Amino acid sequence: MRAVISGYYGKGNGGDEALLMSLLQMLPPEIEPIVLSGNPRKTYEQYGVETYHNRSGLAILQALNTSDIFIWGGGSLMQDVTSLASPIYYGGLMALAQQKGLKTVAWAQGIGPLNNPLTRWLTRQVLLGCTAVSVRDYKSAELLSKWHINPLIAPDPVWALKSKSVLGLADLPAPRVAVNLRSHPLLTPPRLKILTQALIDFQKATRTCLLLVPFQASQDLEIARSIAEKLPGSHKIIQLENPQQLKGFFKGVEMAIGMRLHSLIMAATEECKCFALSYDPKVNYLMEEIDIPGWDLAQLPTDPNTISTAWLEYFVNGDSLIKDRIQSLTDRSLMHQEILKKLVI
Protein backbone atom coordinates (compact mmCIF):
# COMPACT_ATOMS: atom_id res chain seq x y z
CA MET A 1 0.00 0.00 0.00
CA ARG A 2 1.16 3.53 -0.73
CA ALA A 3 0.39 6.53 1.46
CA VAL A 4 0.73 10.21 0.55
CA ILE A 5 1.81 12.14 3.67
CA SER A 6 1.10 15.87 3.84
CA GLY A 7 2.34 18.35 6.43
CA TYR A 8 4.56 21.38 6.96
CA TYR A 9 7.67 19.53 5.81
CA GLY A 10 10.84 20.68 4.08
CA LYS A 11 10.65 24.14 5.64
CA GLY A 12 13.36 23.61 8.23
CA ASN A 13 10.93 23.53 11.15
CA GLY A 14 12.33 21.19 13.82
CA GLY A 15 8.95 20.43 15.35
CA ASP A 16 7.28 19.47 12.08
CA GLU A 17 10.29 17.43 10.98
CA ALA A 18 10.08 15.61 14.33
CA LEU A 19 6.42 14.86 13.62
CA LEU A 20 7.34 13.44 10.20
CA MET A 21 10.08 11.28 11.68
CA SER A 22 7.67 10.08 14.40
CA LEU A 23 5.08 9.18 11.76
CA LEU A 24 7.63 7.31 9.63
CA GLN A 25 8.72 5.36 12.73
CA MET A 26 5.11 4.42 13.50
CA LEU A 27 4.04 3.60 9.94
CA PRO A 28 3.44 -0.14 9.40
CA PRO A 29 6.06 -1.75 7.12
CA GLU A 30 3.31 -2.71 4.66
CA ILE A 31 2.75 0.97 3.88
CA GLU A 32 5.15 2.80 1.54
CA PRO A 33 5.34 6.54 2.34
CA ILE A 34 5.28 9.30 -0.27
CA VAL A 35 6.00 12.67 1.36
CA LEU A 36 4.85 16.04 -0.01
CA SER A 37 7.59 18.50 0.89
CA GLY A 38 8.62 22.10 0.35
CA ASN A 39 12.13 20.78 -0.30
CA PRO A 40 11.81 17.28 -1.83
CA ARG A 41 15.55 16.71 -2.27
CA LYS A 42 16.31 17.53 1.36
CA THR A 43 13.43 15.38 2.62
CA TYR A 44 14.64 12.46 0.49
CA GLU A 45 18.21 12.85 1.72
CA GLN A 46 17.10 13.05 5.36
CA TYR A 47 14.55 10.22 5.43
CA GLY A 48 15.19 8.13 2.31
CA VAL A 49 11.55 8.22 1.21
CA GLU A 50 9.84 9.02 -2.09
CA THR A 51 9.02 12.74 -2.21
CA TYR A 52 7.13 15.21 -4.39
CA HIS A 53 7.01 19.00 -4.24
CA ASN A 54 4.01 20.13 -2.21
CA ARG A 55 3.22 22.98 -4.59
CA SER A 56 3.40 21.01 -7.84
CA GLY A 57 -0.15 20.21 -8.91
CA LEU A 58 0.93 17.59 -11.46
CA ALA A 59 3.23 15.86 -8.98
CA ILE A 60 0.52 15.80 -6.31
CA LEU A 61 -2.02 14.34 -8.75
CA GLN A 62 0.50 11.70 -9.80
CA ALA A 63 1.11 10.77 -6.15
CA LEU A 64 -2.62 10.57 -5.37
CA ASN A 65 -3.38 8.57 -8.52
CA THR A 66 -0.85 5.88 -7.55
CA SER A 67 -1.69 5.69 -3.82
CA ASP A 68 -4.22 4.07 -1.52
CA ILE A 69 -4.03 6.33 1.54
CA PHE A 70 -3.72 10.06 2.30
CA ILE A 71 -2.46 11.21 5.73
CA TRP A 72 -2.31 14.63 7.37
CA GLY A 73 0.96 14.03 9.19
CA GLY A 74 0.60 15.82 12.49
CA GLY A 75 0.66 19.43 13.70
CA SER A 76 -1.72 22.38 13.55
CA LEU A 77 -2.54 22.22 9.85
CA MET A 78 -6.17 23.30 10.21
CA GLN A 79 -5.99 26.70 11.89
CA ASP A 80 -6.64 30.12 10.37
CA VAL A 81 -4.82 32.40 12.81
CA THR A 82 -1.65 32.41 10.70
CA SER A 83 -3.50 32.65 7.37
CA LEU A 84 -6.52 31.36 5.47
CA ALA A 85 -4.25 29.81 2.85
CA SER A 86 -2.95 27.00 5.08
CA PRO A 87 -6.27 25.34 6.03
CA ILE A 88 -7.66 25.82 2.52
CA TYR A 89 -4.57 24.14 1.04
CA TYR A 90 -4.49 21.18 3.45
CA GLY A 91 -8.28 20.84 3.46
CA GLY A 92 -8.32 20.98 -0.32
CA LEU A 93 -5.75 18.18 -0.57
CA MET A 94 -7.76 16.03 1.83
CA ALA A 95 -10.97 16.68 -0.13
CA LEU A 96 -9.24 15.77 -3.41
CA ALA A 97 -7.92 12.53 -1.91
CA GLN A 98 -11.41 11.66 -0.68
CA GLN A 99 -12.88 12.43 -4.09
CA LYS A 100 -10.37 10.00 -5.61
CA GLY A 101 -11.46 7.28 -3.19
CA LEU A 102 -8.33 7.11 -1.01
CA LYS A 103 -8.55 6.17 2.64
CA THR A 104 -7.90 9.44 4.49
CA VAL A 105 -6.43 9.92 7.96
CA ALA A 106 -6.13 13.08 10.07
CA TRP A 107 -3.21 12.02 12.27
CA ALA A 108 -2.12 13.65 15.55
CA GLN A 109 -3.80 16.93 14.72
CA GLY A 110 -4.27 20.09 16.73
CA ILE A 111 -7.48 21.52 15.29
CA GLY A 112 -8.07 25.27 15.49
CA PRO A 113 -8.42 28.06 16.19
CA LEU A 114 -10.81 28.32 13.25
CA ASN A 115 -12.39 31.77 13.21
CA ASN A 116 -13.51 31.90 9.58
CA PRO A 117 -16.82 30.20 8.62
CA LEU A 118 -15.26 28.81 5.41
CA THR A 119 -12.34 27.12 7.14
CA ARG A 120 -14.60 25.75 9.88
CA TRP A 121 -16.96 24.29 7.26
CA LEU A 122 -14.10 22.85 5.19
CA THR A 123 -12.43 21.29 8.23
CA ARG A 124 -15.68 19.70 9.40
CA GLN A 125 -16.48 18.32 5.94
CA VAL A 126 -13.14 16.64 5.34
CA LEU A 127 -12.92 15.25 8.89
CA LEU A 128 -16.38 13.73 8.51
CA GLY A 129 -15.06 11.96 5.42
CA CYS A 130 -11.95 10.55 7.13
CA THR A 131 -11.33 6.85 7.69
CA ALA A 132 -9.68 7.70 11.03
CA VAL A 133 -8.93 10.81 13.10
CA SER A 134 -6.53 11.31 16.01
CA VAL A 135 -5.88 14.55 17.90
CA ARG A 136 -3.23 15.57 20.38
CA ASP A 137 -5.20 17.72 22.85
CA TYR A 138 -8.56 17.72 24.60
CA LYS A 139 -9.66 21.07 23.12
CA SER A 140 -9.41 19.67 19.60
CA ALA A 141 -11.41 16.65 20.75
CA GLU A 142 -14.08 18.92 22.26
CA LEU A 143 -14.46 20.82 18.99
CA LEU A 144 -14.73 17.60 16.99
CA SER A 145 -17.31 16.13 19.38
CA LYS A 146 -19.56 19.11 18.58
CA TRP A 147 -19.32 18.00 14.95
CA HIS A 148 -20.26 14.43 15.96
CA ILE A 149 -16.74 13.17 15.26
CA ASN A 150 -15.14 10.82 17.79
CA PRO A 151 -11.36 11.13 17.46
CA LEU A 152 -8.68 9.14 19.21
CA ILE A 153 -6.99 11.52 21.66
CA ALA A 154 -3.37 10.98 22.69
CA PRO A 155 -0.31 13.12 23.50
CA ASP A 156 1.79 14.53 20.67
CA PRO A 157 3.74 11.73 18.89
CA VAL A 158 7.05 13.55 19.49
CA TRP A 159 6.88 12.31 23.09
CA ALA A 160 7.76 8.89 21.66
CA LEU A 161 10.44 10.03 19.18
CA LYS A 162 13.75 8.30 19.88
CA SER A 163 16.47 10.81 20.75
CA LYS A 164 20.17 10.88 19.84
CA SER A 165 22.99 12.49 21.77
CA VAL A 166 24.71 15.64 20.51
CA LEU A 167 28.49 15.49 20.25
CA GLY A 168 30.35 18.29 22.01
CA LEU A 169 27.44 19.40 24.18
CA ALA A 170 29.07 18.06 27.34
CA ASP A 171 32.15 20.20 26.61
CA LEU A 172 30.16 23.43 27.04
CA PRO A 173 30.17 25.09 30.47
CA ALA A 174 27.58 23.90 32.97
CA PRO A 175 24.92 24.51 34.10
CA ARG A 176 23.23 24.98 30.74
CA VAL A 177 19.87 26.62 29.98
CA ALA A 178 18.21 26.43 26.55
CA VAL A 179 16.22 29.32 25.08
CA ASN A 180 13.88 29.10 22.10
CA LEU A 181 12.08 32.20 20.82
CA ARG A 182 10.36 32.58 17.45
CA SER A 183 9.13 35.55 15.47
CA HIS A 184 5.46 36.24 16.09
CA PRO A 185 3.21 39.33 16.27
CA LEU A 186 2.96 38.85 20.05
CA LEU A 187 6.75 38.95 20.40
CA THR A 188 6.91 42.68 19.76
CA PRO A 189 10.24 44.58 19.82
CA PRO A 190 9.45 45.96 23.33
CA ARG A 191 8.69 42.45 24.63
CA LEU A 192 11.84 41.04 23.04
CA LYS A 193 13.83 43.81 24.69
CA ILE A 194 12.28 42.95 28.07
CA LEU A 195 13.01 39.23 27.64
CA THR A 196 16.58 39.94 26.52
CA GLN A 197 17.22 42.04 29.64
CA ALA A 198 15.65 39.33 31.79
CA LEU A 199 17.99 36.75 30.22
CA ILE A 200 20.99 39.02 30.91
CA ASP A 201 19.94 39.41 34.56
CA PHE A 202 19.21 35.68 34.88
CA GLN A 203 22.61 34.76 33.48
CA LYS A 204 24.41 37.16 35.82
CA ALA A 205 22.60 35.64 38.82
CA THR A 206 23.11 31.99 37.85
CA ARG A 207 26.34 32.00 35.79
CA THR A 208 24.64 29.63 33.38
CA CYS A 209 25.68 28.94 29.80
CA LEU A 210 22.74 30.08 27.68
CA LEU A 211 22.14 27.97 24.59
CA LEU A 212 19.96 29.66 21.98
CA VAL A 213 18.15 27.02 19.93
CA PRO A 214 16.45 28.06 16.68
CA PHE A 215 13.86 25.44 15.67
CA GLN A 216 13.28 27.14 12.32
CA ALA A 217 16.13 29.31 11.11
CA SER A 218 13.91 31.57 9.00
CA GLN A 219 11.86 32.58 12.05
CA ASP A 220 14.14 31.98 15.04
CA LEU A 221 17.76 32.59 14.03
CA GLU A 222 17.69 36.39 13.80
CA ILE A 223 16.15 36.61 17.27
CA ALA A 224 18.78 34.21 18.66
CA ARG A 225 21.56 36.33 17.17
CA SER A 226 20.11 39.56 18.54
CA ILE A 227 20.03 38.06 22.05
CA ALA A 228 23.46 36.41 21.77
CA GLU A 229 25.25 39.67 20.98
CA LYS A 230 23.96 41.20 24.22
CA LEU A 231 24.69 38.34 26.64
CA PRO A 232 27.54 39.02 29.07
CA GLY A 233 28.36 35.39 29.88
CA SER A 234 28.94 32.06 28.19
CA HIS A 235 26.54 31.33 25.35
CA LYS A 236 26.20 29.54 22.02
CA ILE A 237 23.68 29.30 19.19
CA ILE A 238 22.86 25.63 18.57
CA GLN A 239 21.42 24.68 15.16
CA LEU A 240 20.44 21.04 14.66
CA GLU A 241 18.58 19.70 11.62
CA ASN A 242 18.17 16.10 12.77
CA PRO A 243 14.98 15.87 14.89
CA GLN A 244 16.39 13.07 17.03
CA GLN A 245 19.48 15.12 17.85
CA LEU A 246 17.32 18.17 18.48
CA LYS A 247 15.42 16.18 21.06
CA GLY A 248 18.56 14.60 22.51
CA PHE A 249 20.10 18.05 22.92
CA PHE A 250 17.83 18.66 25.91
CA LYS A 251 19.39 15.73 27.81
CA GLY A 252 22.36 17.98 28.50
CA VAL A 253 20.33 21.00 29.61
CA GLU A 254 19.09 21.91 33.12
CA MET A 255 16.19 24.11 32.06
CA ALA A 256 14.45 25.27 28.88
CA ILE A 257 12.67 28.58 28.28
CA GLY A 258 10.60 28.00 25.18
CA MET A 259 7.96 29.47 22.90
CA ARG A 260 7.60 26.61 20.44
CA LEU A 261 5.43 23.68 21.46
CA HIS A 262 7.95 21.05 20.46
CA SER A 263 10.84 22.77 22.25
CA LEU A 264 8.85 22.23 25.46
CA ILE A 265 7.76 18.67 24.61
CA MET A 266 11.32 17.64 23.72
CA ALA A 267 12.72 19.27 26.85
CA ALA A 268 10.09 17.74 29.14
CA THR A 269 10.70 14.28 27.66
CA GLU A 270 14.40 14.55 28.45
CA GLU A 271 13.71 15.43 32.14
CA CYS A 272 14.54 19.10 31.63
CA LYS A 273 12.74 21.81 33.60
CA CYS A 274 10.44 23.80 31.29
CA PHE A 275 9.23 27.40 31.40
CA ALA A 276 6.77 28.38 28.67
CA LEU A 277 6.22 31.65 26.83
CA SER A 278 2.92 30.98 25.08
CA TYR A 279 1.92 32.53 21.76
CA ASP A 280 -0.74 29.95 20.84
CA PRO A 281 -3.51 27.94 22.55
CA LYS A 282 -1.62 24.69 21.80
CA VAL A 283 1.16 25.83 24.15
CA ASN A 284 -1.40 26.67 26.84
CA TYR A 285 -2.91 23.17 26.50
CA LEU A 286 0.52 21.64 27.09
CA MET A 287 1.12 23.91 30.10
CA GLU A 288 -2.13 22.66 31.61
CA GLU A 289 -1.53 19.02 30.70
CA ILE A 290 1.93 18.69 32.27
CA ASP A 291 1.68 21.56 34.77
CA ILE A 292 4.59 23.74 33.66
CA PRO A 293 4.92 27.43 34.58
CA GLY A 294 4.96 30.30 32.13
CA TRP A 295 3.22 33.36 30.75
CA ASP A 296 1.07 34.16 27.78
CA LEU A 297 3.14 36.63 25.77
CA ALA A 298 0.14 38.96 25.69
CA GLN A 299 0.36 39.18 29.51
CA LEU A 300 4.15 39.21 29.79
CA PRO A 301 5.33 41.34 32.76
CA THR A 302 6.83 44.64 31.73
CA ASP A 303 9.55 44.53 34.40
CA PRO A 304 12.52 42.32 33.39
CA ASN A 305 13.31 41.78 37.08
CA THR A 306 9.93 40.09 37.62
CA ILE A 307 10.70 37.66 34.79
CA SER A 308 14.31 36.92 35.75
CA THR A 309 13.27 36.39 39.39
CA ALA A 310 10.61 33.87 38.32
CA TRP A 311 13.16 32.03 36.16
CA LEU A 312 15.70 32.03 39.00
CA GLU A 313 13.16 30.67 41.48
CA TYR A 314 12.16 27.89 39.09
CA PHE A 315 15.78 27.14 38.17
CA VAL A 316 16.67 26.65 41.84
CA ASN A 317 13.50 25.09 43.25
CA GLY A 318 11.46 23.82 40.28
CA ASP A 319 11.05 20.19 39.32
CA SER A 320 11.16 18.42 35.98
CA LEU A 321 8.56 15.81 35.07
CA ILE A 322 9.03 12.57 36.98
CA LYS A 323 10.07 9.52 34.95
CA ASP A 324 6.75 7.71 35.50
CA ARG A 325 4.82 10.67 34.07
CA ILE A 326 7.14 10.90 31.07
CA GLN A 327 6.76 7.17 30.45
CA SER A 328 2.98 7.45 30.69
CA LEU A 329 2.87 10.30 28.15
CA THR A 330 5.27 8.42 25.86
CA ASP A 331 3.23 5.21 26.04
CA ARG A 332 -0.04 7.05 25.42
CA SER A 333 1.42 8.95 22.45
CA LEU A 334 1.98 5.57 20.77
CA MET A 335 -1.81 5.27 20.54
CA HIS A 336 -1.51 7.33 17.37
CA GLN A 337 0.15 4.26 15.86
CA GLU A 338 -2.99 2.19 16.35
CA ILE A 339 -5.01 4.02 13.68
CA LEU A 340 -2.15 3.49 11.23
CA LYS A 341 -2.09 -0.24 11.93
CA LYS A 342 -5.82 -0.47 11.17
CA LEU A 343 -5.17 0.77 7.62
CA VAL A 344 -3.59 -2.57 6.69
CA ILE A 345 -6.14 -4.85 8.37
Rank of each mutant, 00 (worst) to 15 (best):
M1E: 14
V4T: 05
V4Q: 04
I5S: 03
G12V: 00
M21S: 15
S22V: 01
Q25M: 09
I31A: 06
E32M: 04
P33A: 11
L36N: 08
T43P: 09
T43G: 07
E45S: 13
V49G: 11
H53I: 00
N54Y: 00
S56G: 09
I60V: 06
L61H: 14
Q62L: 02
Q62M: 02
A63E: 10
L64K: 05
S67N: 07
G74S: 10
A85R: 15
Y90D: 09
G92C: 04
M94E: 10
G101A: 00
L102E: 02
K103V: 07
V105W: 01
A106V: 07
A108P: 12
G112N: 03
L114R: 02
N115K: 13
T119P: 14
C130E: 10
C130H: 10
A132Q: 10
A132W: 00
V133Y: 01
V133F: 01
V135C: 07
R136I: 01
D137W: 03
K146V: 03
H148K: 13
I149M: 03
P151C: 03
D156T: 09
V158G: 13
W159H: 11
W159C: 12
S163I: 02
K164F: 06
K164T: 11
L169R: 09
D171P: 13
R182A: 10
L186F: 01
P189G: 09
P190R: 09
R207G: 13
T208D: 05
C209N: 13
L210H: 07
L211N: 09
F215Y: 08
I227M: 05
A228W: 00
P232N: 13
M255R: 08
I257A: 03
I257P: 13
I257N: 05
R260Y: 02
L261Q: 08
H262G: 12
C272F: 03
C274N: 10
C274H: 04
P281E: 11
V283N: 12
P293C: 05
G294H: 07
P304Y: 00
I307C: 08
T309Q: 14
F315L: 01
L321A: 06
R325Q: 15
I326C: 12
Q327W: 01
R332W: 05
L334V: 06
